[in-house]
C-alpha cells in the first residue's frame, strides 16, 4: 500500500498509549493495530476526524504517500 499511516510518531509526541487512543477514537485496539501495520484497505472520514481530534494533529501528520512502496 502506497499510503503509510504514521500513528506511532504522533502517539510518541502526545505521550499516549495505543489503548488510550483506541478508546478515544472509538475503535477496537485490533482495528487500530490494522491501521498502524498498514493492513487497512480504507479509512472512513469519521475515523480520520476522530484520530486527528484525539492526537490534535492534521491528516497530513498521520498520512504519508510513498509511491514506491506498493
Amino acid at each position: 500500500m502506497a499510503i503509510i499511516v504514521n500513528i506511532d510518531v504522533m502517539l510518541a509526541r502526545r505521550k499516549m498509549s495505543s489503548g488510550e487512543l483506541a478508546a478515544k477514537v472509538g475503535i477496537t485496539p485490533a482495528n487500530l493495530s490494522i491501521l498502524k501495520t498498514g493492513k487497512a484497505r480504507a479509512i472512513r472520514f469519521t475515523t480520520l476526524e476522530a484520530l486527528c481530534r484525539a492526537l490534535d494533529c492534521q491528516p497530513g501528520d498521520i498520512l504519508e504517500y510513498h509511491p514506491d512502496s506498493h
Binding site: 487497512a40 484497505r41 480504507a42 472512513r44 475515523t47
Partner: peptide
C-alpha cells in the same frame, strides 16, 4: 466483506 472489514 473483507474490504469492509479492513475499512477502519
Amino acid at each position: 466483506s473483507e474490504e469492509n472489514r479492513l475499512t477502519i
